[in-house]
Design a binder for these strands. Structure first.
Lengths: 195, 195
DNA sequence: GCCAACATGTAATCAGTTACATGATTCG
DNA sequence: CGAATCATGTAACTGATTACATGTTGGC
């Protein structure tokens, strides 16, 4: 659900300046806009999320009927909505696969709304991925030991091709470790670029 | 839908040896089994997929009522099901993000069913990711040029903080390129390990 | 007799995509 | 007058998750 937090973020960034109706928010996801490179949000889903956010009490909606254009609904962040956005912006993601989408959205809004808290977010995200990598290395070491054991006794004891299995498991863990290491190196590059 | 192809693969690997009823297939996704490290499949979804595969004509199901245990449905790959599995096994995935799940599943069954075709799959997957990386590098170069242009003229011409936008876009592209490069390096390591 | 393992599902819910429905205003 | 833009949605469908429903057999 990074989409919903992105809407909270857009409403926070547009405070007072922009009205914050659905069509306006949808423009931020049009081709060429930075968020479009990360997240796709069709009008249908956008209005759906806006309703969910209103039910959750994170945004308030008021009808805005004025001459000269079709009536529209203006959306404003509530205090609890703003608190939720801040909480979300400060929390690193828990898995490497979430870097690609959710963390990139966090990064966008952290840059726009609270750049002073960015170094801390980057450091905490780094710590999470570091722990993940350590855990992967540990599992990888275990898989290596198992493979050794299996290679040692050639006999087929009916447990199937367990040696092939743990060779495969090692490949899986290698990929995850490589992706996590790439994400860590990228986080450092982001920290450098931010300065 | 790697889950459905995984079921086709399991049925192909168990040919004659194993009956291929739902509960049996479910065991392959139990904790500790290699596929469980990559793909999670609850019984509910498993039986659902089996029905879909039967509707598609890729598997045939026959009831197997025998004393001494609850009745069960035996599933067998059809010729078109086997053809579909082979087609899928030979096709590289189109995006870096699909390496983590779908390609790992392909790798598992390619190792088990057609190891002689593995080098070709690895080479073709490498080519796909290489093209992707080249495209990312090109986009990255464009984003760099834009950022230069924007930095050159300090004036705010009302297009918003476009310099910040393209700095962000560059970070996004950097991450994708890093993840793709990591996947490429891993593919080479897999090719080495396979021999 | 009871629990674990065998065996197959349904129901409810949630998330997401695609396409369509509706209608106003503005510009050429 | 017709097309583009503004503006808000619904409907139909696909996919996935979670939890529950149902009943059998074999071992302690």
């Amino acid at each position: 659900m990074p989409a919903e937090h992105a809407l909270l973020g857009l409403l926070a960034m547009g405070e007072a300046a922009r009205p914050g109706h659905g069509y306006d928010l949808a423009r931020e996801f049009a081709a060429g806009k930075p968020l479009a490179a990360v997240l796709r949000l069709e009008p249908g889903m956008l209005y759906h999320h806006l309703k969910k956010l209103a039910r959750a009490g994170w945004v308030e909606a008021v009808d805005d009927v004025a001459g000269g254009r079709p009536p529209r609904r203006l959306h404003r962040l509530t205090a609890t909505g703003r608190a939720e956005l801040d909480r979300w912006l400060a929390a690193p993601v828990g898995h490497t696969r979430e870097i690609r989408l959710e963390f990139l959205v966090k990064l966008y809004f952290a840059r726009g709304l609270a750049p002073e808290r960015l170094p801390r977010l980057l450091a905490e995200q780094r710590a999470v991925l570091d722990r993940l990598l350590a855990s992967l290395d540990e599992q990888r070491a275990r898989a290596g030991r198992d493979a050794g054991d299996e290679a040692a006794d050639e006999s087929d004891d009916g447990t199937g091709d367990a040696a092939g299995d743990s060779a495969y498991l090692r490949l899986v863990l290698d990929l995850r470790a490589a992706q996590t290491r790439a994400a860590l190196a990228w986080l450092d590059a982001v920290a450098d670029a931010i300065g």
